[in-house]
């Protein structure tokens, strides 16, 4: 058990290291560099050279990578070249804002997805299941910005219930942010619920025809108790990893949604940073998102380990 956890942990660290190399190389491969972007039209060979020297862009790539990696281990993500501030400072509040948005969507979305999934599984091939599945497929197939646009049209332009954009000051307190972000939360929930729901539904259907559910039925256990005590825990086990993936996606993949709603989150910051060729900022955000992605998956694996008695005790040969 401990060996297993340690192995997962080490693997996660190695993955993170590999990702940092890939991110670094990816940014290197982009045409132009921060000095180009910063100076733009006003660039002269002399000013470019001076700026490159200042940013340390004249040293070889591998050395820059090692420096960056070393600084990062000390918690220093470097300086944003375009914004002339430490990266961590630039990211700080925007990251918090994204977490607020994602957490709110997750708190609404995950339980909703599970409940709907169980409901659809129980009413398999009857009209409630067909209705739920139809809506889920819509959520899965429509691109995020289309969903967002439709929701804005319906809820803020027609019904005028919620504001169409989520323009809040970057450093606003959470209490003030929440009332402004109903629509982004609904959009994210709509997209996220679909994936989890479909999986929970499939697992539920599979578990409902299992021998142990039939046994519980023939043992005279009331139907609701069978669903919640015998079927649901077993249907949830394979869903944990997908929920984790969805969570990680929420943090990383909200860029478009944030842009549509003009919400000062990390996704929007990333898009702006790419436009500015702000390499240190792009690298910083990418490595944070990668870290979260890996971290959430690690937690999901460990959770699956804790919840699934079969994985926890392996009775070898």
């Amino acid at each position: 058990m401990i060996v297993l956890i340690a192995r997962r942990f080490i693997l996660a660290l190695i993955t993170l290291l590999l990702i940092s190399i890939i991110i670094f190389l990816g940014v290197e491969a982009l045409p132009g560099d921060a000095a180009d972007a910063y100076l733009g039209q006003s660039a002269t060979p002399e000013s470019l050279r001076a700026l490159r020297e200042e940013f340390g862009l004249d040293t070889p790539a591998h050395q820059r990578y090692l420096n960056w990696l070393g600084d990062m281990l000390k918690g220093d993500l470097g300086d944003s070249m375009a914004r002339r501030k430490p990266v961590s400072e630039v990211i700080g509040n925007q990251f918090r804002n994204t977490v607020v948005l994602a957490a709110a969507a997750a708190i609404v979305g995950i339980p909703l997805a599970i409940v709907l999934g169980v409901f659809a599984g129980l009413t398999r091939d009857k009209w409630p299941d067909i209705l739920v599945s139809l809506v889920a497929i819509l959520g899965m197939t429509l691109p995020g910005f289309v969903t967002a646009t439709v929701l804005i049209y319906v809820f803020s332009i027609r019904l005028e219930w919620f504001p169409a954009i989520a323009m809040v000051p970057t450093d606003a307190p959470v209490i003030e942010i929440l009332p402004n972000i109903f629509l982004p939360i609904i959009t994210l929930t709509f997209i996220m619920v679909a994936h989890i729901l479909r999986l929970v539904r499939t697992n539920m259907i599979e578990v409902l025809v299992s021998n142990y559910v039939q046994m519980a039925r023939l043992k005279g256990v009331p139907a609701m108790r069978i669903v919640f005590l015998h079927a649901l825990p077993n249907a949830m086990l394979p869903s944990i990893n997908v929920i984790a993936l969805t969570l990680a996606w929420l943090l990383g993949g909200v860029a478009i949604i944030e842009t549509v709603f003009n919400y000062p989150g990390i996704g929007k910051l990333l898009i702006n940073a790419i436009g500015d060729r702000d390499l240190a900022l792009v690298q910083g955000i990418a490595i944070i998102l990668a870290g979260i992605y890996i971290g959430v998956n690690l937690i999901a694996d460990l959770l699956a380990l804790v919840l699934n008695p079969r994985l926890r005790t392996s009775r070898g040969h």
Binding site: N211, N234, P309
Partner: peptide, 11 residues
């Protein structure tokens, strides 16, 4: 039942 291993709820 036959095959008690499958008739007991695994969790």
């Amino acid at each position: 039942p036959q095959n008690a291993g499958e008739a007991l709820t695994p969790t």
